[in-house]
Design a binder for these strands. Sequence first.
DNA 1: ATGTCC
Length: 373
Amino acid sequence: MGNTIRSVAPRVNIIASAETWIEDKAIQQLITTAQLPGMVSVSGMPDLHPGRGYPIGAAFFSQRRFYPALVGNDIGCGMALWRTDLTAGKISLDKLEKRLGNIDEPPDEINELPSEFAELPYSPGTIGGGNHFAELQQLDEIYQPARLGALLPDTRQLLLLVHSGSRGLGQAILEQHVRAFGHRGLEQDTPEAAGYLSQHQLALRFAAYNRQCIAQRMLRRWHSDGEALLDVNHNLVAPAVIDGVSGWLHRKGATPADCGLVVIPGSRGDYSYLVRPLPHAVSLFSLAHGAGRKWMRAECKGRLDQRYSMQQLARTAFGSRVICQDKQLMFQEAPQAYKPIDTVISSMEQAGLIEPIARLKPVLTYKTRGNAQ
DNA sequence: ATGTCC
């Protein structure tokens, strides 16, 4: 277990095997964040990478105050996994792509919008940009048949993984907070803290509902039924007691290890893993939320556009299909721009933080139909 | 990341 946990400074751990590449800038950001007033300890996940000031793929545990800026704009971002009635091989990729069409605009046919969202100037049901996606996946390898069987009795059924968040709502909440309080955080048990937390909770519920609407509208277009198997947030702050200390656990691109089974996806050209978390304080009860970027967004097009056409990038090494008619995004989210998922998974497995249940393989990845310039 | 920014 020891050689996959790097202690890079006092109260700063990183879960990563020796072969896991992590940028110096991300480690610096992690150490800097650990110096914030009230910070007790921080933990970098194997997908740690630099963000705007604060790193992504990390958990932060503080006492007495918490930091909305650490959660970021996409409050409630997470992964929802659905079982579908579609089965591998029974339906062609052409048909799936054609039936799916364009889901970039919010659906106008939402049956019962929960009343708490009725007055919001944001509509649920869209994926958004960046690393968000919805992906149809197929079971590839099973490591724990009994645990998988409890979730997915028919292993031929395709799965739908939705990665999205609270969209404009979380953005507006963070903007409003930063305008009023900057990056100094909020003292607990104050009206300001209660005000933020109440908006934050609304964003968590909206993000989960957004993922549900996305999955349901995709299933509807495919004339399929389905069922939500799990929905787990990786951008949030919540009260926690760790090693007897009461405080605030921030997760920024860090999957909770204490909320049941989770999916940790690789890039669109790589596997995703369904895993059983083994909660541990050294990782602040958290796990990686994906493979983690290898290249900065800005450098991806320059590195790839001489070698690959849009058409080539729309197919992966697995033969899966990618719907992404935004050229910048197509390059930014290319498999080459991400670390391989197997080192991320094996780092956590060697550290005793997860037990893999099954490996999933992409079939069809939806990003966007827009912005083809 | 953002019904994004021109």
